[in-house]
Structures are given as structure tokens and as C-alpha cells.
Design a binder for these strands. Sequence first.
DNA 1: AGCTGACCGATTGTCGGACAAAAACTTGCC
DNA 2: GGCAAGTTTTTGTCCGACAATCGGTCAGCT
Lengths: 244, 244
Amino acid sequence: MEIEKLKVPPAYQAVSTELQKHILSGALKPGEPLPSEIELAAKFGVNRSTVREGIRQLESEGLVRREGRKRLLVTVPHSADLAPRTTRALVMHEVTFHELWEVAMVLEPLAAQLAADAASDAQIAALKANLDATAAIVERGISPGKLDLEFHSLVSAAAANKVLLLSREPVGLLLYPAFETFQMQLPQAARRLVDAHREVVAGIERRDGAHAELWMRKHVADLKRGWELAGLSIDQRIEPGVTP
Amino acid sequence: MEIEKLKVPPAYQAVSTELQKHILSGALKPGEPLPSEIELAAKFGVNRSTVREGIRQLESEGLVRREGRKRLLVTVPHSADLAPRTTRALVMHEVTFHELWEVAMVLEPLAAQLAADAASDAQIAALKANLDATAAIVERGISPGKLDLEFHSLVSAAAANKVLLLSREPVGLLLYPAFETFQMQLPQAARRLVDAHREVVAGIERRDGAHAELWMRKHVADLKRGWELAGLSIDQRIEPGVTP
DNA sequence: AGCTGACCGATTGTCGGACAAAAACTTGCC
DNA sequence: GGCAAGTTTTTGTCCGACAATCGGTCAGCT
């Protein structure tokens, strides 16, 4: 006789999953407001407190959003909602620089190549603006910092591939800030960074996917070289650089 | 005089982020129990209901886990916690087959290559077992179904790269189930699938990264060919295949 | 001794109601 | 029509309560 460990989910979870179904099924479309908490409590036949607990789960999953004290709105989870969670998970799993780098080494070049095909004029303009800003900052001897992070986000946004965008974000969020630490010590690294960025942008602008991809690959490879030159171990754990 | 629209986050969010900080900072280590709700309420100076709402957020983020009605335990978010969320997000973003495939086309070969270097004996045995099961199923004319999904998870698990594991999971979760639909119509596709799997496993076993990577690349490329042969559009939206 | 079962405190899940502050809506006025 | 004041809703937070469950104790039975 086999007896499964039967699980009776608490009511607030039932509320959460039930609402989730309604949203996923399309009965509630993004942008639409949810019923009020009192209505939901009445419909589900539970107390308002229970409904609220269920809502919190959806809220932290990015399926609904509340602005101020207004009604809840159905939303599609944006990259900004999911990436921090995954980033946290990566940190807690104590991932090493090497692990991050290996993945970046395939995702970033792909982003560059696709961006060369798909980038809009506005996106190319944004890339150029970022490039100029980075060059100016580096000229003054300051570490590019967030501009580097932004550059890679812009490239993957230009790639017009939402899967890539979502997959890459947590990696970039963790990898690029890690370089603030040693780029101060290696002035030539910052100049190499700007050069590589410039070539990537040039490739994208010329619709030369191979060129963009090649230089992005060089660029990411350079990151590892810089890491090693700075005397850091490949198996060094990565700490969160930017607080989300 | 400039007056910014200062935002006062609700108390339950404050509780959530505060607990998060404590966990991330290492004050609360994975496996340790959290204080009881009453204690937390006393420490934070808020009501127990408020604490509970805050806890729900952490719970759905996988930072804490509750088994039965016991105390809350601090945990590190596992891939199984995060992947479904990302998968949902991808579905809601209406990603196309092509977008998924482009990313899989770089992540899966990387997984195969790394697995050839890092796979343990037990992992290789698991891969072989999966291979045998898949071959047996296909022999009887049944679609591999979850076994295919499992195969790719096993490969990326064997790659010993936690970043890759977490990045790849949502893609696989969405991509492979999509093939159940047409593999029935294309019997030769299932046989090609088994052949490719076999070569990947052989490469991993021989520690021949190039071989494993090559065949994984062929295999993923095949998926696209099969998709097209089945008369499906590359820009077809992907529906969730397995309920998480 | 080892196991059983009753008892008890602690904790969680759920409920009901309450109230201030903010938002949404209605009404009356120009 | 547009605007200002008032009214209703809704949210955020609190309080108190109780059944169910978990964990442990402790006497009683074999």
C-alpha cells in the first residue's frame, strides 16, 4: 500500500494560484485592474487577510503591480522584475567568475550579432550616446561603471530577442560591476574596453554581424584577461555589485 | 524649493526587504529557522498580519521555505523555484520559436562541451540511462516527451556551471515540450533525436568536448528543421507545454 | 526498556472586525 | 463645460480570537 505524502496547500496559496490561472488564461489582460480585495475575498469565500497574503505572492512575481495605494494592475513581468531575483540566486549559489564568464562568452557575442541585424536607428543612436559618454569618462580616468553595464543591456535590447534579453540580464548585472574593482588599477583596460565597444557599435551600424560578434567576443575575452592580470582567481566568488 | 514625490513603501515591503538583507548578509544562514511570526512582529514593531504579508513575498521568491505548518527555513533559491517564473514571463512576452531557438543554439552546445570536461561518473550513468529509456520509447513509436527535456537538463547539470544551469532551464522548459506536437508526425525526427543524443553522450563519456558540442549543435539545429518540416512558422508563438 | 497515548505549550492558518489615509467618485456651483 | 467640496471605496495596518497542527513531556502499558 503506497501512501503519498498528500499536501494540502494553505488557502492563501490557493488564492495565488487561482488568480494566476485567471491572468495566464487571458481572462485578465495586462493593464486591467483586479477586483478589489473585498470583492476577491467574497468571490473566493475567504477572509480579506487571506486574499492579501495571496496577492503578495503575485506581486513579488511581477504578475501584478501596485502603484501607490491604487488598485492592482495586471502586468507582464519585466526583465527588471526577474533579473534581480535570478541575480540573488546566483550570488547565494556562490557562483564563480569563471562560471559567469563562460556563459557571457556565448550570450554577449550572440547579442551583438543579432543586434547588427535588428537594431533600430534609435537604438543605434542610444549605443553611440553610451559610447561617447563612456569614452569621455574614461578619458578623465574614471571607471566606466554603470555605463559598461548599460552598454551591454543596450546591445541585447537591440537584438530584438526577448529570450536573450531575459537570459542575459542576470549575468550582466553580476559580471560587469565586478570590474569596477580592478579597472582602476589597469588604465589600459579601460581604453581597450572603449575600443571594443566602438568596434561593436561600428559593426552594428554597418549591419556587419560578424564584425560586431567578433569584437564582442574579444571584449568578453578581455574581461577574463583583465581579471587575471589584476591577480584575481578565476574561481573567485562574485559579490553583488549593484544593489537592485 | 524642490519637493520630490517621496515614496513611502508599505510596511510589509519594509519587512520583506529587511529580512532579505538579513539573509543576504549571512546573518541567517540557509537551513536555519526564522524567528516565529510573533517574535518578528515584536522585533519590527508591526502587527503579525503585516509580518505575514512580508513573509509571503520572500516565500514566493524562494528565499524561505515552509514545510507543513512548521517554522520557516532559510533556503537558497533553487532552479526549480526560478525557472517557472521566467518561463511564465517568456510566455507572457509572447516569445517566438525563433527567439527561443537562437538562444538554445548557443547555450546547449556550451553545456555539452562543458559537460565533457566536468561530468561525474554518476552523471554520465544518468545520461546513459536517459538515453536507453529514450531509445526504448522511440522504438515503440512513442514521442520522447519529458525524456528529451530531462536529457538536456542532465547535460547542463553535468556541465558544473550553475549560471548556465539557471540560464538554460527556462529556455529548455519552453522549447522541448513544443516538439511533442509534431514529433508524432515525423517518425524519422525521433530517430535523429536519439542518434544525436547518443553522440552527445558518447562525446561526454570520451571527454571529447568538441564532439559533444558539435552533435549538440546539430541536434538543436535539427529541432528547427523539424519545426519547419512540420509546416510551423518560425515566428509562431510558444505556448507553455508542461505545467510547472 | 521500549512503545503508546494523553496532555500541553507554541506556532501557524484563518477569521472577524476596526480605523486612518489615500484614491475614486459624485455632486453642486460657476 | 470645468472646477471645488464632499462622499464612498479601497488600501494599509492594527487588534483580538480560535482551530489545527507541531513538538515535547510524561505517565502508563506490555
